[in-house]
C-alpha cells in the first residue's frame, strides 16, 4: 500500500497517523504541503527519520522545488517526479491521508 500525505505535519496529524498505521516497508509519499515535513532541522525531522527506518519515504520534486527545499532535505528522503508518482500508484494500492 502506498501512503500519500498532502498536509503539513506542522498543521495536521496526518503524517503522524500515517506512520503509526503504515505496515513495515510500505512506501510513504509526501506531496503538496506535506513536503514541509521533509525539510532538514524542523521539529518533525525525528518523525521522518523514524519513518525512514521502516519505510521508503518519497517527496514530489515539483512541490519541493516550489518551496525552495531542494537543498535542505532530511537525508534518506527520495525526490521523485510525476512519472515516478504514476509508477508508484501503479505498483501499490493508494491510501490518501487527507
Amino acid at each position: 500500500m502506498l501512503h500519500i500525505v498532502n498536509k503539513s505535519p506542522y498543521m495536521k496529524s496526518s503524517l503522524e497517523s500515517c506512520i503509526r498505521v503504515a505496515q513495515k516497508n510500505a512506501p510513504i509519499l509526501l506531496i503538496e504541503d506535506a513536503v514541509l515535513g521533509a525539510a532538514v532541522g524542523g521539529s518533525v525531522e525525528g518523525l521522518v527519520q523514524g519513518a525512514l527506518k521502516d519505510h521508503p519515504v518519497y517527496a514530489l520534486g515539483a512541490d519541493i522545488s516550489a518551496r525552495g527545499l531542494a537543498g535542505s532535505l532530511t537525508p534518506g528522503v527520495k525526490v521523485i517526479d510525476y512519472a515516478d508518482f504514476v509508477d508508484l500508484v501503479e505498483q501499490h494500492k493508494p491510501m490518501t491521508w487527507l
Binding site: 503509526r20 498505521v21 505496515q23 494500492k93 491510501m95 490518501t96
Partner: peptide, 17 residues
C-alpha cells in the same frame, strides 16, 4: 494501530474522508 494498518492492507479500495 497495527490492527488498523493490517485491515487497510487487505482492502481492494480505500476511500478517505
Amino acid at each position: 494501530s497495527a490492527g488498523i494498518g493490517k485491515i487497510m492492507e487487505e482492502q481492494d479500495v480505500i476511500l478517505p474522508f
